[in-house]
Design a protein around this nucleic acid. Sequence first.
RNA 1: GCGCCGGUAGCUCAGUGGAUAGAGCAACCGCCUUCUAAGCGGUAGGCCCCAAGUUCGAGUCUUGGUCGGCGCACCA
Length: 558
Amino acid sequence: MEDVYSLSLKQVYDMLRRSVQNLCDKYGVEYCINFFVEEPQVLEFGDFASNVAMVAAKHFKLPPLKLAEEIVANMPLNNSYFAKCEIKKPGFINFFFNNEWYVEALQNILSSGTSFGRTNFGKGEKVLLEFVSANPTGPMHIGNARGGAIGDSLAECFKFAGFNVEKEFYVNDAGNQIEKFKKSLAIRYEQIYKKTPNFVMPQDCYQGEDIIKHAKDFAKIYGEKYVNSSKQEMEQAILDYALPINIKNLESDLLKYKVEYDNWFFESNLYKDKKIYEVIDILTEKGYTFEKDGALWFGYSKCGGAKDEVLIRDNKIPTYFASDIAYHYNKFKVRGFSRAINIWGADHHGHVDRLKAALSVLGVERASLYVVLMQMVRIVKRGEAVKLSKRLGNSVTLNSLLDLIPIDVARFFFNMREPNSHFDFDLDLACEQSDNNPVYYVQYAYARICGILKKLAGFNFSLSANFSLLNSFEELDLIKHIAKFPFEIIEAVKSYNPSKIVRFCLDGAAKFHKFYGVCRIKGEAADLVSARLGLCEAVRITLKNAFNILKIEAREEV
RNA sequence: GCGCCGGUAGCUCAGUGGAUAGAGCAACCGCCUUCUAAGCGGUAGGCCCCAAGUUCGAGUCUUGGUCGGCGCACCA
């Protein structure tokens, strides 16, 4: 059964369209009117409002208010979800839900249970969502933590909305940063035995403690075995040792963070099977590559780009851009996804357009790839931004963050802001276990409901409870909010913005707390008790499903 | 210099071309004999960065500025 909110919204559109169509026939006007129906901000303007009369006024050559009157007069409300509609000042038509709307909304939630919020909006479309894809040369930092929370919750939104989603981690286990990684490892290993006086790590190497630890652990196992080997042999041995450990750590750290991937896609596979060259050959066939200074270039300027881009360096090693094209070609043309979503840090924004340009040459529509650009995270401590640098090895890792704050708090915090806004992560607030912390606010609402349901377990609430007894403002407002859940998920999907779910939880918790303060349950007449318990259960179901999207725990007690 | 993102209450941020611009935190004043006070109610707080334009209507769209973040490698 479709949810009542969407049904009633569709109903308003249908009724208005039919009425306007009739008037078009009557006045001999051609129907080409683009209007909307939305939820007004102010309560007195009803549950839905439409601007149709204002938009259509000039077509009909009638004043908006006059036209609104005609539209309404032409639009019977019987057998609808609406009790009345009103016409207001510049020409708005405002609709008000009838009692059935609220009753059916509750029945729908209660009977849907764990599947409430699920829709067939996506019609099973195959979507690939790639996120985090942190470099396997070191631990994940705070930006990866944000990407993980956003990506994973967004994937859940897409699943709820009826998409067939696969979550993928792209492992950059090839290319330049791996060269740098093994060089850094080898130097640290060598230094365990050589002990050069006043040794300083070269500028172009990774400076982090994790490199030293790998070298030490490697030395524990192999001792001096590789000290006198060729540089190449030494680097390969220590790389073969350290890289799998790093990848395994990425996997287990993300799992701890409740992020589980369907696929781990290795960049090295694109090299092994010559996939990169096959894709470059296609670009060449289409006439979009050329040679210059010993390198092979992509003619990006031919597709509107500012400058051309190197695909294969003069040393014959392909660039990251080249493997990225091959990787995305694989997503669309090999594995057949109709849509790919990437979550990238905003510092990669310059890559979006050139990748799309290359893909369009390969026959992939630019719009098939959507890149969510996630703005940078700033760590704020005592009101001051903390300067972090991965190169200096003092960045906050995901792990060290999770030592400071519970996983729920981290996942919730990183989804409080929309991806495209700069995010100040307030470490002090996140660490605080108090009423200031918004995570506890929503979890407390859930626990309160569970408390009530437990205390009044003797009462039965059923679909046949007399829900029309719920008619206070707080009750109706709460029902209206939770009924909107499936719609809200679709909004999150359309805007690639899971923070809408966090806001939904916060608003829902606030409305429940208000209801709780005004409406008592225990001690009321039996039929009112069961109606209100039904409302509580419906809120519980909704919050629980929303928590599942965010992967935060629904605790029955605080 | 060019490009992307942002500027809304003291702070952190919502806001679909619509009606009277909202929330949380901080400040101040109240509310537990009751189903969980990690809660609720109230007060106060605004040249929506500036300027021009588009139209019935602009925080929202366009252009030009300004301030901040991030890019502009044969790095990833």
